[in-house]
């Protein structure tokens, strides 16, 4: 199981976003509707950040990855991944929560 993931759909052209932008890059609309996706995702790629910038000092090491979240319809987001382990590309992951405005995912078994 995973928490559902709230994406944003352009009310005019249906372009899907992980975060609501100020305006749709496809059509310029400024209106977006919340679109609930399954929180199941697939990891495209990831890294373990061991030398962070001064604004994230003390959190290292931490894992950042690119996740395709959703089932039939997916949206790609940059996210934190729980734990300090190496994840393989294409690993299944599950949405946990938005923490300090960053999406957090974990292996599905951990849920």
């Amino acid at each position: 199981m995973s928490e559902p993931f709230t994406a944003y759909r352009c009310a005019d052209c249906e372009e899907l976003y992980g975060r609501a932008p100020a305006a749709c890059r496809a059509c310029g609309s400024e209106t977006f509707d919340a679109a609930e996706l399954s929180g199941r995702g697939r990891l495209y790629s990831s890294t373990v950040v061991r030398v962070p910038g001064s604004d994230h000092q003390g959190q290292e090491p931490f894992v950042v990855g690119i996740v395709d979240v959703g089932d039939e319809e997916t949206v790609r987001v940059t996210a934190r991944l729980e734990g300090e382990c190496r994840y393989d590309p294409d690993s299944p992951v599950a949405f946990v929560e938005s923490r300090e405005d960053t999406f957090v995912f974990a292996p599905p078994d951990d849920k």
């Binding site: 975060r19 790629s45 890294t47 950040v49 931490f62 990855g65 940059t78 590309p89 960053t102 999406f103």
Partner: peptide, 20 residues
Amino acid sequence: ETEGRSGLTFPGFYGMFLDR
């Protein structure tokens, strides 16, 4: 708003590039 808050660095960007 996206990568900055996640803590991703530029070595991290190319770490993900190399991973894939």
